[in-house]
Amino acid sequence: MSPFGGFLMPIVYSSILDEHRAVRTAAGMFDLSHMGQFVLSGDGVAGWLDELTVNEVATMKPNQARYNMFTNSRGGVHDDVILYQLPGHWLLVVNAGNTEKIWQLLTAALPPGISLFNRTLESALIAVQGPRAVEILKPLCDFDVATLRYYYAGQGTVGGIAAEVARTGYTGEDGFELFIQAGSAQALWDHLGEAGAGYGLLPAGLGARDVLRLEAGMPLYGHELSEDITPLMGGQQWAVRFDKPSFSGKEALERQRLGGAFDRIAGLVMDGKAPARAGYPVSFEGQIVGQIRSGAPAPALGGKNIATALLKRPAADVGTRLAVEIRGAQHMATVVPMPFYKRLRSGERS
């Protein structure tokens, strides 16, 4: 167990490789109760959040979930979040390491008529992720999880426990995130573990989760996004709605987009067996052009070492050959398109 965001969190239950394999081929369940959960209500929530974030809030439909980012005036990212529009309230799920920061930001600017509640300690979050997640949850739920659309939520019971169930995740697989009362967490965890065992479900820790999200090309705050790494630099420009009339950091992001010469996150595959790790210098033709931001061996790519790096512009182009400095030695890598791993959806063939 490791301290993380004020919680004691499991990095690994059995083996990162076994847990990874379970999520890619069957299912894994993750305890994500450390993530911050804020409840907002009031008529002005959408308009207010639209000013603070890059993606559109006002166009969200009932029960829809949307990835979003809170940005500073320079276009850097305070946090990347998922916002849910649930019946009667909005649920904002923030990174554990940023819970306090986003809470301060929201409370300092809270407009009249909007109520804000931090339910992090009263609420738990368990994710069930993997190709067999539907099979596992379907018999436990009093509503049809199979028809729940991607990035939508439903309300009901799971194993008799009241839950908000969202078809969201951070692994690159199909799956669900279950929001429940903290007091029900142990019971639901045990119930899922028993119900899922026959399907190959394993408890999975933060170690496997990090490898899974990296393979799927999903950013991790503090690595691919930060107060200094904007959504454009981090490769998340798809989430920035420049057609919104205004939002925090919009001018800076527009300047960055028009200028074009900004550093950006690129995907790397190493030639050799030595893993690239966060912080290692990256060079192109003998010149340092950036730094590794995340790196791990990727079981989904046969154990090849993958990484993200924040790189100066020409060096970030796909196909570029780069050298990663590992303990004083240069190890070659190639820039590749992200994501590194994409699951086959039904109807596709391998």
Binding site: I16, L17, G207, D210, A274, P275, A296, P297
Partner: peptide, 8 residues
């Protein structure tokens, strides 16, 4: 050096 998935 020995490296695991997450640690050096």
């Amino acid at each position: 050096v020995v490296e695991s998935v997450k640690a050096v």
